[in-house]
Computed example of a mutant assay.
Amino acid sequence: MLIDNHNRTINYLRLAVTDRCNLRCNYCMPSEGIRFAKKEQLLTTEELCKVSELMVAEGIDKIRITGGEPFVRKDLMQLLRFLAGLEGLKDISITTNATLIGPHIEELKELGVTNVNVSLDAIDRENFKRITRRDQYDLVFHNLHQLIREGFNVRVNCIVLDGQNTDEIIPMLQLAKEFPVSVRFLEEMPFNGGSKSFDHIRWDHRKILETILAAYPDYEKLQSPATSTSVNYKIAGHKGTFGIIPSFSRTFCGSCNRLRITAKGDVITCLYGKPKANIRDLIRGEDSTEAVSRAVRQAIGNRAKTGFEAQENFDTVFENSMTSIGG
């Protein structure tokens, strides 16, 4: 079992499989993109399988596959097939922009990989095109609706961007009204590859909630797991739910149970902090099992208590892009 230096049990791994993405969302990276990792810098599929197996042996029972866009990686299904058969792993989930998932939906369902987070920051076609800098609206919504029809547990993640999509908060809730999905609104974070600088936000979790409740006063607050990053609600008459994730305000740090490993092997114990170790060379060396376990345990044993504490020790974190951090 992995327990950090603040007595928090770590059982959730966010495993990035690539830093590449086929969209260019303007809050994530500059229009020209970022300097992506070279192929030899990335963990191979076999190495990702081995890392996953080692982490499950250490007590990880939930793995979320992230990127970049995970399905940019051509051999992703090979990893997912391995994870589906990994004893001790209770939950496999994916975060995706839903552009490339379509051909894999049937097999994902067969494998039991039915927890899918879809990153979607606009329900209006033109806003979607402007934010993503790509014309993929029809494809994304086709795949989103197919996931819903096939009975996947779908969460739609919408980052609230001041001056860009705040007028879409209420229309976005139409998805939760018509379908049994969870629409979750996230505070904007500063991981955009240096394309924008800010140290505060206007649209924090309070303002987002006030906006929703002004339109839908008949609601109830739902009970959420202690480790949940979202505060969740149910609007009367809606098939689904909505949630708010205070990702910039960081009110959930006290119960954090997450560990990140990037596509290059960086071990990250907090989004707002620098990598604590890199396991790529360790996994490629002799005695890799013990070396990787030791590095991860050491990283977790030297963990910041909150995102604010982590940020104090790493001022340059905001030059990173979320696609390189791992979602």
Results as ranks from 00 to 15, higher is better:
Asp4Arg: 06
Asn7Glu: 14
Asn7Ala: 13
Arg8Gln: 07
Ile10Pro: 09
Ile10His: 00
Tyr12Val: 06
Leu15Trp: 03
Asp19Thr: 00
Cys21Thr: 03
Cys21Met: 00
Asn22Lys: 02
Met29Asn: 01
Pro30Leu: 00
Glu32Gly: 07
Gly33Arg: 03
Arg35Thr: 15
Leu42Arg: 00
Leu43Gln: 03
Leu43Thr: 03
Thr44Lys: 07
Glu46Asp: 15
Ser52Gln: 07
Met55Val: 01
Ala57Phe: 13
Ile60Ala: 00
Ile60Pro: 00
Asp61Lys: 11
Thr66Pro: 05
Glu69Ile: 02
Phe71Ile: 05
Phe71Gly: 08
Val72Lys: 04
Leu76Val: 04
Leu76Tyr: 05
Leu80Glu: 01
Arg81Asn: 01
Phe82His: 10
Gly85Glu: 07
Leu86Thr: 05
Leu86Ala: 03
Gly88Asp: 03
Leu89Ser: 07
Lys90Leu: 09
Ile92Ser: 00
Ile92Arg: 04
Ala98Leu: 09
Thr99Leu: 08
Thr99Phe: 02
Thr99Trp: 04
Thr99Glu: 00
Thr99Asn: 03
His104Phe: 14
Ile105Phe: 01
Ile105Glu: 02
Ile105Lys: 02
Leu108Met: 09
Gly112Cys: 05
Gly112Val: 01
Thr114Asn: 12
Asn117Gly: 08
Leu120Ser: 01
Ile123Leu: 11
Asp124Gln: 15
Ile131Asp: 03
Ile131Leu: 11
Ile131Phe: 08
Arg134Thr: 10
Leu139Glu: 15
Val140His: 01
Leu144Phe: 08
Gln146Thr: 14
Ile148Met: 09
Arg155Gln: 10
Arg155Trp: 05
Asn157Leu: 02
Asn157Ser: 01
Leu161Asp: 00
Leu161Asn: 03
Gly163Cys: 07
Gln164Thr: 15
Asn165Tyr: 10
Val181Ser: 10
Ser195Arg: 10
Phe198Glu: 07
His200Glu: 15
Arg202Met: 13
His205Gln: 14
His205Trp: 15
Arg206Leu: 15
Glu210Asn: 12
Thr211Lys: 14
Tyr216Pro: 05
Asp218Thr: 08
Glu220Asp: 11
Leu222His: 00
Leu222Arg: 06
Gln223Asn: 15
Ala226Tyr: 13
Ala226His: 11
Ser228Asn: 01
Ser228Trp: 08
Val231Pro: 08
Asn232Val: 08
Tyr233Gln: 04
Ile235Glu: 09
Ile235His: 04
Ala236His: 14
Lys239Met: 12
Ile245Tyr: 09
Cys253Trp: 05
Ala263Met: 08
Ala263Cys: 11
Ile268Trp: 04
Thr269Phe: 09
Leu271Pro: 01
Glu286Pro: 13
Ser288Lys: 12
Ser288Gln: 11
Thr289Glu: 15
Arg294Tyr: 11
Ala295Gln: 05
Gln298Cys: 11
Ala299Met: 00
Ala299Lys: 08
Asn302Arg: 12
Lys305Gly: 10
Thr306Cys: 11
Asn313Phe: 12
Asn320Gly: 10
Met322Trp: 02
Met322Thr: 04
Met322Tyr: 02
Thr323Arg: 05
Thr323Gln: 10
